[in-house]
Computed example of a mutant assay.
Amino acid sequence: MLFSEATVALADPHKLAADLVEHLSAHDVAHERHGARVVLQLGVGTGSLEPVGERLRVRVEAPDEGGLEMLRALLAANIVDFAEGEAPAIAWSGFAAGAPTFANFRELRLVATEALTPRLRRLTFTGRDLGRFASAADLHVRLYLPPPGVTRPEWPRPGPDGRTLWPEAPLCPEVRYYTIRRASPDTVEIDFVLHDDPGPGARFALQARPGAICGIAGPMGRAAPPAAWTLLAGDETALPAIARLLEAMAPDARGVVLIEADGAEAGYPLAAPEGVSVRWLDRAPESPLHAAIRALDFPAGDDLFVWAGCEAKAARTLRKHLRSERGLTREQHLVVGYWERARVPVP
């Protein structure tokens, strides 16, 4: 495990640490307290905050340099945002600015497209050293997509204090989060939902031709661990993740899959173990997902896991149901808000 540290002078490090922990907790980031030190579980690794006098000690730990960069960027950006008009100097150990891109960034070139259903299209990319994206533990990535009229954008890079430095318009890429469907050392497959009012991702999937360039960084976002019984649920934006989770299950796995989608999306290829039933829920006239989960009989015992991916507000409602009404612990469920109602959904 690698680590990087910084000691930041602040007017009130205790208040900043408390505000930052409250903010991250609202986004379902788990944390533990060890005296004055708070340890945050940040997906690709951990971060810790410890106020000492007029300084805030910050430490991040991750398996590789790409993970360290992600965590440095996250905590540095939040420290600056919560410093209330201060200009804190953040200098990380083991880090020197000047790299042209982040360590976990790769440039991709489109080589093929395939229509999976009327509203889902698979894009296959090639690139160098893509093996990190074949991780079975992490499902999601950031995609850096060219803005309209730009064939080769400039890529973000780490700044002097670890925060992300973004290119200026019009060469700044648009960023969306997607699920890796399949990856190898030299190829990556990503499934895109095609929307009536397409956002950057759907627009790229509709318009891009072989040779088109985009960028990728990650991976991140934990999967569903093995359990005696598993519930996988979501709308069509979660289909690539659900497909991967099903493929990773043992042949004798038991559970249920609930998928909210338009009727045509039922043609999306899924391969479930014999003991896992798959139910497609017709969206019309409104979302049936939450009601279907509430009506489901969960097995007795603690050896179960619920994974869900859906609209952000629906995710918050479902998370509350699983914790308050079903009594599940954080270790027994993961509910991901894949998109917001006011924005175009992304897988």
Rank of each mutant, 00 (worst) to 15 (best):
E260Y: 11
T113C: 11
R176I: 01
L318D: 02
R152V: 08
P160V: 05
E236W: 10
L130Y: 03
D64C: 05
H195V: 10
T113E: 01
F82I: 14
T124E: 13
V335H: 05
D297G: 11
T101M: 10
R109M: 15
D191C: 11
A17M: 12
W229A: 11
V8L: 07
P160Q: 13
E50W: 03
P198I: 09
P100E: 11
R121E: 13
E65N: 12
I190C: 05
E265L: 04
G45L: 00
A6Q: 03
R181P: 10
R323F: 11
L258E: 03
H321T: 15
L334W: 07
A248W: 02
R122V: 00
E154V: 01
L258S: 06
V306I: 13
H34N: 15
R319L: 00
A271N: 14
T179E: 12
S4Y: 00
P13Y: 09
I259V: 14
T126E: 10
I293V: 12
W155Q: 06
E65Y: 07
C214K: 00
W307G: 01
D81N: 14
E22P: 07
R152Q: 15
P269R: 10
P269Q: 13
Y268N: 05
R132I: 12
L194K: 09
P148Q: 06
R128F: 03
T329F: 08
V111L: 04
M249Q: 09
G98H: 02
A212F: 02
I259G: 02
R294W: 03
F192V: 03
L289F: 04
A233W: 09
A183C: 06
R319C: 07
L20P: 08
I259A: 12
P170N: 14
N78L: 11
L75H: 12
L171Y: 10
A223D: 12
L110K: 06
P147A: 06
G255S: 00
A36S: 14
D262A: 10
A99G: 10
E5K: 04
A6G: 04
G149F: 15
R323G: 05
D302Y: 08
W280Y: 08
R59P: 05
F105W: 01
D191Y: 10
R323L: 07
P285I: 03
S184T: 15
G309I: 04
N78H: 15
V8N: 13
L296D: 07
A223I: 11
A134L: 03
L239C: 06
H195K: 12
L56H: 08
A224C: 09
R244T: 14
W166F: 02
E50V: 00
Y144G: 01
R33Y: 00
R128V: 05
I216N: 03
L296V: 06
A134G: 03
A134K: 03
P153Q: 09
Q332K: 08
L110I: 08
A342S: 07
P345G: 02
G94V: 02
A115G: 07
S324Q: 13
V44A: 00
A312M: 13
R157Y: 15
L304W: 04
P156W: 04
E114R: 11
L42M: 07
R203V: 13
S4G: 03
A295D: 09
V8M: 08
